[in-house]
Design a protein around this nucleic acid. Structure first.
Lengths: 214, 214
DNA sequence: GCATCTTCGTGACAAAGTCACGGTGTTGGC
DNA sequence: GCCAACACCGTGACTTTGTCACGAAGATGC
């Protein structure tokens, strides 16, 4: 999934926003944090995830260039605290608005409101789709889909540990390890310490698309 | 979960909305339907759910008196079609706004905007919580929670089939049947054709609350 | 009173998650 | 270079959950 900056001009309030740069792997917010700022990403990606007390984690969504964080929008509008955690996956360049600047812009700029609300709307739909996927889609398909999504077209190397993949899908490391071992044996992928190499793209695609009882 | 009508006065546009009454079990919208109306429920509850091609179903959320349907709001704002299905669980009395009346009200009434957006915000948070629950919470706990939620305090009778419960939780009928058989044997509940009777509320509560490895 | 439908029980199996343990590469002192 | 600490992965044994197939009982309508 490559996200490109939208070429459309930014609505007025964002032109006046302060640009910031954040290195990769930085925690942006955690559950319980108060919400004081609004972000508009220019470059890079941020991952929003949930973690249970038992330490299990699942990715809720990620957002990148030209996108905003709905969890932030939601908290700003509702006045509540963060209920998930977010961290940068790559170096991120973003525009930042204070809460008051956000309120001001949201109340008066139609373009800004449109920007924020469509993001809100899109993400809610995506969230519902995620519920369906997690509830009903077999792990093979979800794992195959993630591998394809993350694999660059050329050499197919993905720098993610089995644990990373498990956290992406809300599964367990052992389960991922076993699937990958099987796929390695079947010639679909190759395993290396800290990374997976996609060999048979078409094979994974047929796995990921397989409609459960069409 | 008893939902009471909020006593606060309705924002202007809703005073002018047309009231409608819908019998129980009516389909409100289905996936693919265009979104042409906005609902504000005065009485009764509506359930929004997802169904796969294989026929498995899971409840996304329900809304009742004083609430609005976020999926509708999302579609109205984003201009896309419905991605889930909704039907009345009880007779419903609601106020209806056309799309244009909604747009008009949303653009000009701060109170209406606030009403819609806080609902939006609340539901998004709830949706994320749902992802976590489905991904990580064991079925016993979720089932126990549903039984408690649905059981009136006095006689504890719940008029739901095992299949209904499975669809509520996104599980399978057989699984629910087995859990209930076990709990019946343990004296927590009693089974009857088409209904479940809660016997030991405290027992179910301790099941539903049990923190996985606190 | 009989066909039909809904609801539920059950056994056998597959998929996924849990727990416990050990093995092997990597890294950073010393 | 050597060793301890750590991250990453493999694996067996087990539990939970989902799937498939079938049949038995209650309900309903004619």
């Amino acid at each position: 999934m490559t996200i490109l900056a939208r070429p459309s001009p930014l609505p007025p309030p964002l032109n006046a926003a302060t640009p910031v740069c954040v290195p990769a792997g930085t925690m942006i917010f955690e559950p319980g944090d108060p919400c004081t700022q609004f972000y508009f990403v220019m470059e890079g990606t941020i991952r929003v995830a949930l973690t249970t007390r038992t330490g299990r984690t699942v990715t809720l969504y990620r957002f990148g260039a030209g996108e905003t964080c709905v969890m932030t929008t939601s908290c700003l509008i509702g006045g509540n605290k963060y209920g998930a955690e977010a961290s940068t996956e790559t170096p991120v360049r973003a525009l930042v608005l204070t809460k008051s600047a956000f309120d001001e812009a949201f109340a008066h700029s139609t373009a800004f409101r449109q920007l924020v609300l469509t993001a809100f709307s899109d993400r809610l739909a995506q969230m519902m789709a995620r519920v369906e996927t997690i509830a009903f889609t077999p792990l093979d398909q979800r794992l195959a889909a993630v591998l394809l999504e993350r694999a660059p077209n050329n050499d197919g190397a993905i720098r993610l540990t089995h644990d990373d993949l498990a956290q992406e899908l809300g599964s367990a490391r052992e389960v991922i390890s076993r699937k990958l071992a099987q796929w390695d044996h079947d010639g679909l992928i190759m395993r290396q310490r800290g990374s997976v190499i996609v060999i048979d793209r078409a094979g994974l695609q047929s796995l990921s698309r397989r409609d459960p009882a069409l």
